[in-house]
Design a protein around this nucleic acid. Sequence first.
DNA 1: TTGTTTAATCCGACTGTTCGGTATGTTTGT
DNA 2: ACAAACATACCGAACAGTCGGATTAAACAA
Lengths: 201, 201
Amino acid sequence: MKDSKGQILKTSLLLFLQKGFKEVTMKEIVKSSGFSKGAFYHYFSSKEEVFKEVIDVYFSQMLHFDYNTLPSNSLQSFYKANLEILQNRDMILNSWYKETFEGDFPNNMYYILFDALRLLPEIKEQQTNRIQEELKAWEKVITNAMTTGEIKTRFSPKNLAKQFVYSSDGIAMHMIMISSSDKLFNEVKEIWDSLYESVKP
Amino acid sequence: MKDSKGQILKTSLLLFLQKGFKEVTMKEIVKSSGFSKGAFYHYFSSKEEVFKEVIDVYFSQMLHFDYNTLPSNSLQSFYKANLEILQNRDMILNSWYKETFEGDFPNNMYYILFDALRLLPEIKEQQTNRIQEELKAWEKVITNAMTTGEIKTRFSPKNLAKQFVYSSDGIAMHMIMISSSDKLFNEVKEIWDSLYESVKP
DNA sequence: TTGTTTAATCCGACTGTTCGGTATGTTTGT
DNA sequence: ACAAACATACCGAACAGTCGGATTAAACAA
């Protein structure tokens, strides 16, 4: 079985991550995925549709993960588990990229996210919910860690949750500007480690 | 005097902030600024050039400001001054926007920044330096605040500096996703206030 | 197995439109 | 009169999308 549609989808994801929706041409999608225009339009009705499917199939899943599966009994294991997910995601994308293209993967999660926010209005609500859930999950773990005595701090749980979440996004932003996303993991780790150190009793 | 060139530049900035370089057409630039193609090409040689000038004239100045002019004798006054700058920048852009367009200003600093990073290679180095300077400025103020006894913390100055800087960028990211940039200021204030509270002796 | 039909998959030349940019003019201020 | 400032009709290239047909695979019959 030759999952042609899947091939086109995967290639499109990588191209959109590189350059954004408008900058990627049909010619590129078709050529990079190794098919023809006819093949493409056999599986998709338009360029916009392949973008939609890319977001649904890959991107939404990449951003969203179930916090219930993460260890919530301790803040330390929770944030370490988050770090691992961050690292795995990057590894998978990188290996996919190297199957299709050459050179380093200029992973720009935000570029494709911005496009999705503009082109697909339902994404905005979806993202709002995602962020709420993420903050709530952190808040819950932090509240728990405070009652068990794992940590002790002047911060409110909500506030500390924001510090963990926002700092990682801020670092991601900076990494995009100066490239080198491999440093992202280490930088986030450093900040989260020290945040954790500062609230240990 | 009819600063036509300035008018075109300002309108272009607002359009690029809305939609990014590729998505803005010459037709839009020309129509929104109230001129004709002839007028545009009298002042600029290409679409790329007006983008370059927009970055040089407006955007670089918006991102870069001289930290020497900010009060550095106390961390508190330093971060409050930073907040003020944040607020002013937003106000100016909003009032400009309302002179030319209708509705709310979908300010997306990062969209235009990403485009600049791709289209103008020299911007990357410029940004790297900017970030270094920003972190250094915070670090210096924090070091000073530690010696004067204003604050007392387990964090290293560099680390605390990163927390201030990264958190604001992370918040900005989140605000773009869920719009409402007017909340940005309050959110950054909340985090910075509590960060400051946590390191007070 | 072999031949035949039918559907799925794939191809690439072609189309209408939009794009950034140009050529050639007209107006305006000095 | 003569630049500088603007307007507009127009151009070729690039774009997303279409179409008739070629190729392959699946289904069925002999």
